[in-house]
């Protein structure tokens, strides 16, 4: 499974790419591979406050709806509009065009609690 070196990971299989005081959030290659056939993405509301460890979005495969947990506290500042017509981008490009939302970090220290690529790789075996 692809686990890029420049990202931080949550135990619940989300990643975050930090750029200054904002972060881009998505789900990992491992997560999309487990879910397969993603057919719908229910994003958070633009401007919503998300909380680390709390459900922020829902990703639906053919089989099941899965909560996506925000890796950090923050305010949702941008959504990936492509996903409404092409939800399968989460399968085909989980770290790039399949990103879910951008967040303005309100508690950057939380990043320290997230996993390094090596730790996440060890988690998923």
């Amino acid at each position: 499974m692809n686990v890029p070196q420049d990202l931080k990971y949550a135990e619940t299989h989300e990643w975050i790419r930090v750029e200054g005081d904002t972060g881009v959030v998505g789900i990992t290659d491992h997560a999309q591979n487990e879910l397969t056939d993603i057919v719908y993405v229910d994003p958070p509301k633009l401007g919503a406050t998300v909380t680390a460890g709390q459900a922020a979005a829902v990703v639906e495969s053919v089989k099941a709806a899965s909560d996506i947990y925000s890796p950090v506290d923050g305010e949702v500042i941008e959504l990936n509009d492509s996903l409404s017509s092409q939800p399968a981008l989460v399968n085909t490009s989980p770290y790039d065009s399949g990103w879910l939302y951008k967040v303005r970090l309100t508690n950057p220290l939380q990043l320290e609690a997230l996993k390094s690529p090596d730790d996440y790789r060890a988690q998923i075996g």
Partner: peptide, 8 residues
């Protein structure tokens, strides 16, 4: 009849 999450 409109775009929606899959019904379950």
């Amino acid at each position: 009849t409109e775009k929606s999450p899959p019904p379950r």
